[in-house]
Design a protein around this nucleic acid. Structure first.
Length: 420
RNA sequence: GGAGGCGUGGCCGAGUGGUUGAAGGCAGCAUCCUGCUAAGAUGUUGUGGGAGAAAUCCCAUCGGAGGUUCGAAUCCUCCCGCCUCCGCCA
């Protein structure tokens, strides 16, 4: 959630911030109006409660018909105002939920992804002396990806990984977790179910994100869309000691996404699916260090892709293409020859105090005050997309696929599909 | 899925309707005292919100949400979490 005090103190800055994210700044005024109304009710309630407390204390000393009837009347008034206060409180919360995190000053302003800023391109795009195949053609030919049977079993946008396809996933997970853990990240296997209240606190049910989540009504639980969703709440309602910061975690989980609104988009292969596995980095940081930690996350992402010997580029997302909870975001886009394009394989976000306020994760300042931490999340390896990149970039004329050197020790071979 | 128990401040732990925001202990902080990596005495110490320049005052808060009552940590309902036993299960 956005910091309410900040909105009250400097509404113009908030308006300017959300406008950059293509959100109507009038929503700020709407919130402030409700906030004023709500506060007046809260204050009135406080006063009436005080009167009631006084009356109760007198009644405790001696019973009196007069006082009793007075207290009963007061009780009725309090319950009436409480009803009003509750209604306003709900409306106020709804209004607050319509406000996304505001971007940092240094984030490039833009409408949509077309205005993202390319920071650098790294690595050589492969040049083929034959017509390269896309990952699905390769995967099917090698017998390591099967989307047809998956569709019959589970529906569209699911896949089987078989044989070396499955082995490739295990190799990528081990490589990624090992590499990331070396930077001081604690490996975590988090829950893949989450309570609505907690997911809400992470800001992941706000706006149209709700449509993206799988919900299990019988159990009143959501399936996570990323390990991020349950890594953040690892320190819910906690005040972390400064010596323990930054806390860095590397999680592994399946991710479940409805892909609502993307019907017909990226239908081929396994680029956009309802279920995939991902290694995810997550950091709890002091506010003044979060920019530094953000750069660390980005550098680790680049380290991973470089070690996999894949061509990629780094883009800084413009304000209009940033996530709801993000104050600053980078994407790593890996070159996919099958699409003849760079496609997003990694995302790297500083959410400042937007999520930490929702899950109440704090630290103590030098002055002893408790303040919200900054939370950061970043893709380690999105397995499916990285498999696509490896297949398409490393394919040979013979239809085999060379395994990146760093994965060979985990695969026990150098090539997929080679005749032995 | 069935049966039962429990959930109080940083920790331990009293408290079954009325000056209880909460005894007592530990820990923390401050002062005093004592010459020997320690002990003692006294005071002080939760969180959130609101008013105020401040001292201070008011409200809320005893897992969470409701309910009963003039009044609830204490009674009732639902939920969450932990523990024990049975069943099932990787």
């Amino acid at each position: 959630m956005l910091n309410v005090n900040l909105i009250r103190e400097n509404p113009e800055a908030i308006k300017a911030g959300i406008a950059k994210k293509n959100i109507d700044p009038k929503l700020v005024d709407k919130f402030l109006r409700l906030d004023v109304d709500w506060r007046s009710k809260t204050e009135a309630l406080g006063q009436l409660n005080g009167e009631q407390n006084t009356l109760s204390k007198e009644l405790a000393k001696k019973q009196s018909e007069d006082l009793l009837s007075k207290a009963q009347l007061l009780k009725k008034r309090i319950s009436d105002i409480t009803v009003e206060e509750n209604k306003l409180s709900v409306k106020r919360d709804e209004a607050l939920e319509k406000l996304p995190n505001i971007p940092f000053e240094d984030v490039p302003v833009g409408k949509d992804a077309s205005q993202n800023v390319v920071l650098r391109e790294v690595g050589e795009k492969p040049i083929f002396d034959f017509k390269p195949k896309d990952h699905l053609a390769l995967g099917e030919a090698l017998g390591i990806i099967d989307v047809k049977r998956a569709a019959e079993v589970a529906g569209a946008r699911f896949n089987y990984l078989l044989g070396d396809g499955a082995m490739l996933e295990f190799a990528l997970v081990q490589f990624a977790v090992k590499t990331i853990a070396a930077h001081g990240f604690t490996p975590v296997l988090p829950p893949m179910f989450i309570k609505p209240q907690v997911l809400h606190g992470m800001g992941r049910l706000a706006s149209d994100q709700k449509e993206e989540r799988y919900y299990l009504p019988k159990d009143e639980q959501y399936l996570i869309g990323s390990a991020e969703h349950t890594l953040g709440p690892l320190h819910m309602d906690e005040v972390l000691s400064n010596e323990s910061l930054p806390k860095r975690y590397v999680g592994f989980s399946s991710c479940f996404r409805r892909e609502a609104g993307s019907y017909g988009k990226d239908m081929k292969g396994i680029l956009r699916v309802h279920q995939f596995d991902k290694v995810e980095m997550f950091i709890f940081s002091l506010p003044e260090k979060s920019d530094e930690e953000h750069q660390l996350l980005l550098s680790i992402q680049e380290e991973l892709v470089k070690k996999l010997e894949l061509p990629y580029r780094v883009v800084q997302n413009c304000t209009g293409d940033m996530g709801w909870v993000d104050a600053k975001q980078f994407d790593v886009e890996t070159w996919l020859p099958g699409q003849d394009a760079y496609r997003e394989t990694h995302s790297c976000s500083n959410t400042t105090d937007f999520q930490s306020s929702g899950i109440n994760a704090k630290y103590k300042t030098a002055g002893g005050k408790k303040e919200y931490l900054h939370l950061l999340n970043a893709t380690g390896i999105a397995i499916g997309r990285m498999i696509i990149a490896i297949l398409e970039n490393n394919q040979t004329k013979e239809g085999t696929v060379k395994i990146p050197k760093v994965l060979q020790e985990f695969m026990g071979k150098e090539e997929i599909g080679a005749r032995s």
